[in-house]
Design a protein around this nucleic acid. Structure first.
Lengths: 247, 247
DNA sequence: AACCATTCAGGTACGATGTACGCAAACGGT
DNA sequence: ACCGTTTGCGTACATCGTACCTGAATGGTT
């Protein structure tokens, strides 16, 4: 594409179906994105190469560039497709706590269905329409409580940050194991296990060791653990809503 | 290296200086890491290729594999070298708030000196000694207040999450601009500027628009903005410390 | 002093990758 | 029937991580 047009993928229109003379497009941006998502879900984002995606569609690698200017833009499209699965009501319910909780849980679910999502999201700044929709819903959930926009943005950011890092913790090792091509069980047993044991045995990091050995939430189901952490974040926000408003 | 030994870089000893017969190593793990850090600081982490690092040292690419088993391990070493710059006292002061604030500010400073740090940190799960040291300090800062280990871990996580995402926001566009090889000013003006204007003009995202247009902190210096956000996170933790303890 | 097992240096080579370039095929309007 | 436009996609190139291998350096042993 040389440097002909440097413009956000969200402002660049897709080729139209009926636009006069010339051959009609055989695929669509959505089809390309869907194929990329399918591969990334199954084999990791690294496997979603241009050639591999094209192969999935039964075409040649260079054909994809008729639909997507750069590979990076394809990542943005993938993010947006995954975020479109975060199903939300038209408007927040009025109960900010359950609204933000809904966003958190749905985003977590999307992040688990698409283990590459969080990595891409925090890898580059992106603002696709579906991400905007979810973000707007979360901001809206905190509107009307007397908070200024900076506080609202900040609180929504805290929830986002929590969700991202919690999901990363949940799937981090799994993905890392796949990236190196090992089965996750063996990875955990032979790679990180001995190292963590050594850290604990060294005695140099007593509190870290306690967080590994004495944690009560560590033995809970992943969903419960997520809920506990989220509760703490929401509690922190709740406490400040009370004091911010009364000020 | 084939699959001879899959073992954490932190458990794999470096070649010893005096170990009997054989040629003595001409470089060290630290020298290799330092060269990689230097290149990544100046030209982005993508520029720190094996060949480029070797060139910086005046040797051949394959020589590096005498010191580092895989490129991914080199990333871990880079992270640890950067984290070693997070200077902290031996023990927390006893004032948890200023202790966590210190960790946050020092980590932010390291993240700005090394714009690749946060990206690598959240890209893969890693537990180098320097990261452990900083983490342990933060955990320790919250110890002795009557909190259980899960609460401590959770609160430290909130601060970490905030620092990471705040730094990412601060340097995100800069790095993205460099990755595409454009000067950051032009990038902001020609790429994201028009798109954000379009989002605002569409009227579909009123709260997002307010966060762009009406923000009071947006016009502050970056350092002030960071402090404000951090204060909110610490306030949320503080409120819960009070209620957790009295419970 | 001669030898040898051991270790490091680093060239060559392979299979990937993203993507620039260019040409042939398909299509609607005239 | 022709033509300008657009798509499909093969070829080619620079670049990547790294497996493999040869040769040089080194210190202990004889």
């Amino acid at each position: 594409m040389s440097d002909e047009e440097l413009i956000s993928i969200w402002m660049r229109p897709e080729r139209q179906e009926r636009s006069g003379p010339g051959r009609r497009p055989g695929y669509s941006r959505q089809q390309v994105t869907r194929a990329a998502v399918r591969i990334a879900d199954a084999e990791g984002v690294d496997a979603a190469t241009m050639r591999r995606i094209a192969g999935e569609l039964g075409t040649g690698a260079m054909s994809l560039y008729r639909y997507v200017p750069r590979r990076d833009d394809l990542f943005d499209l993938m993010i947006d497709m995954a975020m479109s699965e975060v199903d939300l009501p038209e408007k927040p319910s009025g109960d900010w706590r359950s609204d933000l909780s809904l966003v958190a849980h749905r985003t977590r679910a999307a992040g688990q269905r698409h283990p590459w999502l969080i990595g891409l999201l925090s890898g580059r700044p992106t603002l696709g329409p579906q991400l905007l929709r979810v973000h707007e819903f979360a901001l809206d959930a905190l509107d009307g409580l007397g908070l200024d926009i900076d506080a609202i943005t900040s609180f929504v950011g805290m929830v986002d940050d929590y969700v991202h890092s919690a999901v990363r913790r949940e799937i981090g090792w799994l993905e890392e194991a796949r990236r190196t091509g090992l089965d996750p069980e063996r990875w955990k047993r032979d790679y990180i296990g001995p190292y963590v044991r050594q850290i604990v045995a060294s005695g140099a990091y007593p509190l870290f060791s306690r967080s590994v050995l004495e944690s009560r939430t560590a033995h809970l189901a992943a969903g419960e653990r997520f809920r506990h952490g989220l509760d703490r974040v929401l509690n922190g926000i709740g406490a400040q809503i009370a004091s911010d408003i009364s000020r």
